[in-house]
Amino acid sequence: MLILKKFLRDIPAVLGLIIISAVCFIAVFAPLIVPDADAVYFGNIIDRLKPPSAEYWFGTDNLGRDVYARVIMGTRGALLVALTVVALSIAIGVPAGLYAGYTNGWGSEAIMRVTDVFLAVPQLILALAIAQLMGRGLESAMAALALTYWPFFCRTVYGEVRRVRNALFVEALQGLGASTSRILFVHVLPNVASPIIVRATIGMGFTILTTAVLGFLGIGAAPPSPDWGLAIAESREYLPESWWAVTFPGLAILITVLGFNLFGDGLRDLVDPRLRRSR
C-alpha cells in the first residue's frame, strides 16, 4: 500500500484521477444528467443563441439546442472514440513491439522500420491524409488515428522488451522449453505493463485532443452529433455575440484532457523512478 500512499501525496495526480472519474461518471449517466435529452439533437429554434441562464446553463446554439446538454452528451463520444483508438493502437502496437523487441532478424527489423516511417511524419498530418482518403466519417477518423498511433506503443514496448529479454527469468523459461508466445505474453508482458499503462493514459488525453481537431476540421463526427470539436466549428460563425457556444465545449476538452495528463504524469512518476519529476 506504499504505492497508494505515495500516489495520494501527489495532489495534482489525485486531482487528475478525480477529474477522470467525474468525466467517466458523466459519460455513463449522461442521459440522466441532462435536463432534456431531446434538446441534444432538436432545438427550439425560437430560443436560438440565447446566453447562459437558469433555463439554459451554457446558453443555446444557432439551432436553439441546449449547449449544456450537448456538452454533457459529447462526453460519451469523446471517451468512446479515445478508448477505441487507444485500444486499437495497443492491440497492434504491443504485440508488434513484443515480437520486435524479443527477436532479432528481418521480422524485427521490418517492424521497427515501419514505425520509423510513421514517426517520420507528424501524426495529425498523416491521420488527416488517411482519414480523407478513406472517406469522411467518424469510423475512418478513428481508423486513421489508430493507424498512426500504434507506432508509439510499439516503440515503448520495444525498448522495454530489449531491456528485459536477457534477464535470468527469460533464460530460465527458454531452458525449460516454454514457447515464445508463452514467454512474451505470460512473462514478459507483465514486466513491461507499466510503461504501456502510462502511455495509454496520456494517449487518451492526446487522442481526445486530436479527435477534436479532426471534428473541428469536419473530418470526424458528422452533424448533428454533439461532438465537441464539431460544436466549436459550427458555432464559430456566430461570434463574438454567442461566445458561450464555443467556450463551453472547449472547456470540456481542456478539463478532460487535463485530467488524463495530470493522472498520467503522476503514474509515470510512480512506475518509473528514473523519470521522477521532483526529488
Binding site: G205, L209, A212, V213, F216, G229, I232, V246, P249, G250, I253, L254, V257, L258, N261
Partner: peptide, 8 residues
C-alpha cells in the same frame, strides 16, 4: 499541453 489550440 491539454488545451485545444484551435479553441484557444
Amino acid at each position: 499541453l491539454a488545451i485545444a489550440s484551435f479553441w484557444f
